[in-house]
Amino acid sequence: MNDIILTASNLKKTFPIHGGIFYRKIARVNALNGVSFSLKRGRTLGVVGESGCGKSTLGKTLLRLYEPDSGGAVFEGRDVFSLKPDALLKLRQDMQMIFQDPYASLNPRMTVGSIIGEPLNIHRIGTREDRKKKVEAILAIVGMRKEALSRYPHEFSGGQRQRIGIARALALRPKLIIADEPVSALDVSIQSQIINLMIELQREFGITYIFIAHNLAVVEYVSDEVAVMYLGHIVEIAEKRALFNRPSHPYTLSLLSAIPVPEPDLKNSRERIILKGDVPSPIHPPSGCPFHPRCFKATEECRHAMPVLDDVAGDGALHKVACFNR
């Protein structure tokens, strides 16, 4: 399983902020600051980080819903950012997205059948009859009944809507699905149903996932590899076990200790690192390592130089961290 499906190299994306007279550009938000990773086929890369760390921008940039400022991404030998529109359309057959909010991401004026069938129409797959059969089959795969086809999204609960969103992403049998917080809007009992469904689909169709979330317990459960992002940088990326058992970056460490654990007995015994202050603004990121103002290990060096993502273990396993004091 050493088959690389997607490589991102040094992705950078900034968003302009306009203001003042003549609506000039007055500042830039640095959403992605040189993100690189590669992803193996059939595996799941979990991307975690706090709000504003660039994890959603990463997902959308990889799908070329945003054009990056610089950097590249190669998906199955195709350079994502230099494709012509018709080739891009083809590429999107293989890359699909599941969105966070199942209320906002489904068109309330379309029936479930036409929502799931829309990607098939756009890509002109099969005849009308074929498409209809396909939509029915996909609906069954995500565990919904055929009667749902002629109903509208508002008639369904959050969990069922998320199933519809997944069905739409599945319609083209994509190779890669980017799931942006697919379960964070759902209740816990529904959340586990959706997670199970996604894992089952991966096993059945060999789908590769980029699973963006802020809930570390969910990411640990779903992922094979995990990337931790902070202010547009990947600060640590590793095999799941390595990351959760031997976190090397101080940010990963504090993130892990900040999660409330559902075991009251551990309440007092657990060592906790509580970070001071807030995430700095991505408009004026701090110099040097972006984490240094909140870091409990920061030294003079961290204030001036930006650490690069470097191998920790040296035993061949994936575990890279960007820190001078690991």
């Binding site: 706090e50 709000s51 802020h214 570390l216 504090s254 993130l255 200790s257 900040a258 999660i259 409330p260 906790r272 509580i274 970070l275 807030d278 995430v279």
Partner: peptide, 8 residues
């Protein structure tokens, strides 16, 4: 809130 802020 984010987890690190939640902890605070």
């Amino acid at each position: 809130l984010d987890v690190t802020i939640q902890a605070q």
